[in-house]
Design a binder for these strands. Structure first.
Lengths: 133, 133
DNA sequence: TTTAAATACGACTATATTAGTCCGGTTTTA
DNA sequence: TAAAACCGGACTAATATAGTCGTATTTAAA
């Protein structure tokens, strides 16, 4: 019910590794070899992190990735959202279109779940990626 | 990444409904009709809740379910564990057999994730099912 | 004592999500 | 110009979740 996806797990591992290397450029291959992470999958994740401005990339031979900002400035919340997109605790919260939820009239559990949602989000906002190294 | 399963959602809806009915006996059919929840699925969930001593059941004609203890004595944590079983944030934490995790030597993210796990568990322990009605 | 309405239980199927692969590109350095 | 890296999208595989089906068993009432 609450579980990090592989993408998040691999992101944490990779970010830690790249950050530790300071300004040295790190290739996807190096990380995937070291941690036995499928190369193509990791490559995708790093590309995403680059697109989201968490990493900086160099193409071509001797290319690779560098960290673009300190890990204590990236919250778990931000990482999850950028990797997986926004998610909600229950489906009917996902869309603003409440009418999608055919039990909305009689279903009063929505509001408390909403509150729960914020509490979780707040918790994830206070956790920085740097806390996971 | 963090989302209630339908089972949890349906459990909350059903528990609330049954608890509100006080000592009146409620059938799975009544709830599934009212909230458009697949009957067989809800029935299974109620049977599980009975097995876990959250509900009391009567078989036969005029049978159904009653609540066995106040909802403010059932934590979200307990409900989730009883419905879905124990889960961990990342897979290698799931089993005690650390050696399963082939990156355990070099993967230092495990401990912080463990801590995160406890924080989430604590949060879920403080939330009672009664908070969701 | 039979029937109908309910729970009980396990096996099965369908759907959705997640994880991982493949392939054809582009960029860049040696 | 070749090799090594990133880039990107479509595809497949594996797993988890959601839902169905069939067959018992129990029990109240006709």
């Amino acid at each position: 019910m609450v579980r990090f996806s592989k993408k998040i797990e691999y992101s944490l591992i990779a970010l830690r590794y790249i950050a530790n290397a300071k300004d040295e450029i790190i290739t996807a291959k190096e990380i995937s070899n070291k941690y036995n992470i499928p190369h193509e999958l990791l490559a995708k994740i790093l590309q995403k992190l680059k697109k989201e401005n968490i990493l900086i990339s160099n193409q071509g031979v001797n290319g690779g990735y560098k960290i673009s900002k300190p890990l204590n400035e990236i919250s778990l919340s931000e990482l999850i959202e950028k990797i997986e997109g926004k998610t909600a605790l229950v489906e009917c919260l996902h869309t603003d279109n409440i009418s999608d939820c055919f039990i909305s009239d009689c279903c009063s559990i929505k509001d408390p779940i909403n509150k729960m949602q914020s509490e979780l989000e707040n918790l994830f906002k206070t956790k920085m990626v740097s806390d996971f190294i």
